[in-house]
Design a binder for these strands. Sequence first.
DNA 1: CACACAATGAGACCAAGTATCAACACCCCG
DNA 2: CGGGGTGTTGATACTTGGTCTCATTGTGTG
Lengths: 140, 140
Amino acid sequence: MSDELLRALDQAGVRLTGPRREIAALIAKRNGHFTAADLIADAGKRRLGVGRATIFRLLDLLAEQGLVERVDLPDGRHAYVPCEPSHHHHLVCVACGAIAEVEDCGIDAVTSEASRRSGFTIESHRLELFGRCPNCRSAN
Amino acid sequence: MSDELLRALDQAGVRLTGPRREIAALIAKRNGHFTAADLIADAGKRRLGVGRATIFRLLDLLAEQGLVERVDLPDGRHAYVPCEPSHHHHLVCVACGAIAEVEDCGIDAVTSEASRRSGFTIESHRLELFGRCPNCRSAN
DNA sequence: CACACAATGAGACCAAGTATCAACACCCCG
DNA sequence: CGGGGTGTTGATACTTGGTCTCATTGTGTG
Ligand SMILES: [Mn+2]
Ligand SMILES: [Mn+2]
Ligand SMILES: [Zn+2]
Ligand SMILES: [Zn+2]
């Protein structure tokens, strides 16, 4: 549930406020990727009085802790995906939004080769994979 | 210069209008990545009467032709980089904005491994590398 | 249990587009 | 060359996603 998010926030030394608990619960209830607008709508539907800004602020906090990550979908929308702090790449189902996390599987070789060829020092990278999850593939 | 952009647009069967020529010239004059706002400012400075919408429309057109590509910078800004239609990944200097293009150097192995592990079919991917170009590295 | 200071929400503001539509201009066709 | 159909333009309004400000509130620490 949302306990994991709350525990991590506590760890990070921020206050565990009412609005934060409520938003964390909304996030935990989602699956796959979601937009800030989704959360704002969820909050509105349940008449939680949480402000728009608070939602963006919590997303920022969670992103800093590596508990969510922002992905730029191919259609240009910005989504957030819940994630483990240590894993780093996401596979996004373009049909249903499901997410799989893949840990590094050979990307380092790619970056060091790119570095060698270009003369750049590489500090970070972003890899996003888009496709169809097993469900959506069989549902054709 | 901008001739290459114009030639490609002509090829694509769109009209070679005054505003398009002017915007293409602005793009050609830039180096590294630039934002739509940069172009809008450039156009304003030279008192070209080109509208905001026209600039966005040309960027879309060029993106369709693979002549520019949109990158999402780590700080959240949206930039465009000029590029060769066939190459597919970009190395972005976080200090000066310089761009290097790297062709596929082993990414396919990564995606097929990710596909195998996750059960997803992978349709596309996006890889962006951020670092420092040789100049900015030595300028410390 | 008080109080410092972190966090909130309302609302204005901003950045990056997109939609609409009447006026315009490219360029093909005669 | 000179219409004229239609692709293109720019003004303007609107949208989406996010940030800033600041007076008010509420947490957690001591
Ligand atoms: Mn992750
Ligand atoms: Mn490119
Ligand atoms: Zn799916
Ligand atoms: Zn540089």
